[in-house]
């Protein structure tokens, strides 16, 4: 048999290739104790809010367990983008820099195989602890403190959190695929997080007053921010109040109503994340791999 004939073996199917790459990537995630860190952080926050938050006083119409979950969700809205960015931002750029990509791509894999495996593992490592821990801790909290678990609110919070995580997973991967120097990657990641957290109603209103920004610019900046969308989606179940929703939130609530506010709060981060992910995928498919 000729060398060419021997070498032209049947390539494994796409699921086999993606699974092999995902196992490698997953091993890295487990070794870095990322899952443990995420899970621990979510759990610590949840325990903190349950222990200090289960009082009968009402906040925005929420009491007891509802209030705990609302506070937890609010904290997560600020924290989740940071976790997603740090969990994904160096995934591709580090593999490119240390020669891993060069070695991997000497084997019969496609760029989509690699990117699919990285996305699955990194997003899974962010979402899974949340999906397991939040309901688990809510049940524990309800048993210990004899409170009913607000399952609907919990499900809505998980949905919003998963959408927000996807949004910043896409942004992190886009930065990672586009930028190769680790220092520049970190700078862009930090910038993305700061913008996400700063361009909320309250920060923008401050800017508007300080620098006389036009109100339309403030509205536009807040409306395109997936963190703001997620925040409004979480608050969509509350009584509308300018003080809690902020001017953009209040305006949107008034125009759209709670159902649409929630739907947009889930869909907009998903859309932003998908657009960023598609950009990252395009960069990997058409650009240099090293």
């Amino acid at each position: 048999m000729s060398v060419d004939a021997m070498a032209a073996v049947q390539a494994p199917s796409t699921p086999v290739r993606v699974a092999a790459l995902a196992r490698l990537e997953g091993g890295d995630v487990l070794r870095s104790r990322w899952l443990l860190f995420c899970g621990g952080l979510y759990a610590a926050m949840a325990v903190l809010f349950i222990v200090v938050g289960l009082r009968e006083s009402g906040v925005m119409g929420f009491t007891g367990m509802d209030r705990v979950l609302l506070s937890l969700s609010h904290a997560l809205v600020v924290l989740l983008p940071l976790l997603a960015l740090t969990g994904t931002g160096l995934a591709v750029s580090r593999a490119r820099g240390d020669g891993t990509l060069e070695l991997l791509f000497s084997h019969p894999i496609t760029r989509d195989d690699y990117f699919g495996a990285v996305t699955l593992v990194r997003y899974g490592a962010l979402v899974l602890p949340l999906v397991v821990l939040m309901p688990g801790l809510a049940v524990i909290g309800s048993v210990v403190f004899h409170q009913a678990v607000p399952w609907v609110f919990l499900a809505r919070s998980l949905l919003v959190s998963a959408a927000l995580l996807w949004s910043f997973t896409g942004i992190g991967l886009a930065i990672s695929a586009r930028v190769s120097e680790p220092e520049r990657v970190l700078m862009y990641l930090l910038l993305a997080w700061v913008l996400g957290v700063a361009l909320l109603d309250f920060g923008l209103v401050g800017l508007m007053l300080q620098w006389r920004l036009p109100a339309s610019a403030v509205f536009a900046l807040a409306a395109v921010n997936p963190v703001e969308s997620a925040r409004l989606a979480l608050l969509s179940g509350a009584e509308p109040a300018l003080g809690t929703l902020g001017p953009v939130g209040f305006f949107l609530y008034d125009r759209l109503g709670p159902t649409w506010l929630f739907a947009i709060g889930v869909l907009w981060p998903l859309l932003v994340g998908s657009a960023a992910w598609a950009m990252a995928r395009r960069r990997l498919r058409t650009g240099d791999l090293v």
């Binding site: 060419d4 070498a7 032209a8 593999a95 891993t100 060069e102 070695l103 000497s106 019969p108 496609t110």
Partner: peptide, 20 residues
């Protein structure tokens, strides 16, 4: 690349710093 890579073998000068 994928089709051709199944007939290609590569030995880099230095191994990547794989944690695997």
């Amino acid at each position: 690349r994928t089709r051709l890579a199944s007939r290609l073998a590569y030995v880099p000068q230095t191994a990547p710093r794989l944690g695997a």
